[in-house]
């Protein structure tokens, strides 16, 4: 019974990956919108873009990790 509950929990935790996808899309989309308005300033901000994507993605990875822990470690 507990195993099944853990699987359900893992599935719920995996929703976080989708949320992180939304977050990454937001970052990249807004960067693109800004870059198209002011292309000359875009080149200097790619590092910031990647840092932003990394932070957004890290949280998705956390939820993925929780899912893995529920699947394999509980």
């Amino acid at each position: 019974m507990e195993g099944e509950l853990a699987h359900i929990g893992a599935g719920l935790a995996a929703i976080g990956s989708g949320a992180a996808a939304i977050g990454v899309g937001n970052v990249a989309g807004n960067f693109l919108a800004g870059a198209l308005r002011n292309p000359s300033a875009a080149a200097g901000q790619t590092a910031t873009l990647f840092i932003g994507i990394a932070f957004a993605e890290a949280l998705g990875i956390f939820s993925f990790l929780v899912a893995l822990l529920l699947m394999f470690a509980v």
């Binding site: 990394a54 932070f55 993605e57 890290a58 990875i61 956390f62 993925f64 990790l65 893995l68």
Partner: peptide
């Protein structure tokens, strides 16, 4: 976050 990001991405 620094460590889990890297390992998590590769592992995933």
């Amino acid at each position: 976050s620094h460590s889990i990001r890297l390992a998590g991405n590769v592992m995933a």
